[in-house]
Computed example of a mutant assay.
Amino acid sequence: MLNETKDEAAALLTNEQLASLGGGRVAYLKPILSEEVSRMFPAVPPLQPGLKLFALLAADGTPIAVTDSRDAAVANAMQHELEMVSVH
């Protein structure tokens, strides 16, 4: 695997396979601005522009929660027994 190119490594899993990893038990945090909230969370009322927020997302990108505190987002993940992963 050390000699594989980036394209060869990427071909190991399709986007669908990657998204299904964790069987709905894996989540990640994504820092977002308030301007992005309406796209990800349509039910949330309009927010003041420029706010720095955190979105908790399932492995497939499905929005779970949005908050203004990283700690609150992590607590939400723990409450729902989700395993947090780092996304780079």
Results as ranks from 00 to 15, higher is better:
1 M>A: 09
1 M>C: 10
2 L>Q: 12
3 N>I: 06
4 E>N: 11
5 T>H: 04
5 T>P: 11
6 K>V: 13
7 D>Y: 07
9 A>Y: 06
9 A>G: 07
11 A>S: 11
11 A>K: 11
11 A>L: 09
12 L>E: 06
13 L>N: 11
15 N>T: 06
16 E>Q: 04
16 E>Y: 00
18 L>Q: 12
18 L>V: 04
19 A>M: 13
20 S>W: 07
23 G>C: 04
25 R>Q: 08
26 V>M: 14
26 V>S: 12
28 Y>E: 01
30 K>F: 00
31 P>Y: 14
31 P>M: 15
32 I>N: 08
32 I>P: 00
32 I>W: 02
33 L>M: 13
34 S>G: 04
34 S>F: 01
35 E>Y: 05
36 E>G: 04
36 E>W: 01
38 S>K: 14
42 P>G: 07
43 A>L: 09
44 V>I: 06
47 L>E: 05
48 Q>R: 14
49 P>C: 02
52 K>E: 14
53 L>M: 03
53 L>V: 05
53 L>S: 08
54 F>G: 02
54 F>D: 01
54 F>S: 11
54 F>A: 03
55 A>E: 02
55 A>T: 00
56 L>S: 09
56 L>E: 03
59 A>I: 00
61 G>Q: 02
62 T>I: 05
63 P>A: 02
63 P>E: 09
66 V>A: 06
67 T>W: 08
69 S>Q: 14
69 S>Y: 08
71 D>I: 13
71 D>Y: 15
73 A>E: 14
75 A>R: 14
76 N>H: 12
77 A>Q: 13
79 Q>T: 03
80 H>K: 15
81 E>D: 13
81 E>M: 08
82 L>H: 06
82 L>Y: 11
83 E>P: 02
83 E>V: 03
84 M>F: 00
84 M>E: 10
84 M>C: 09
84 M>N: 12
84 M>W: 03
86 S>C: 07
86 S>M: 10
87 V>S: 11
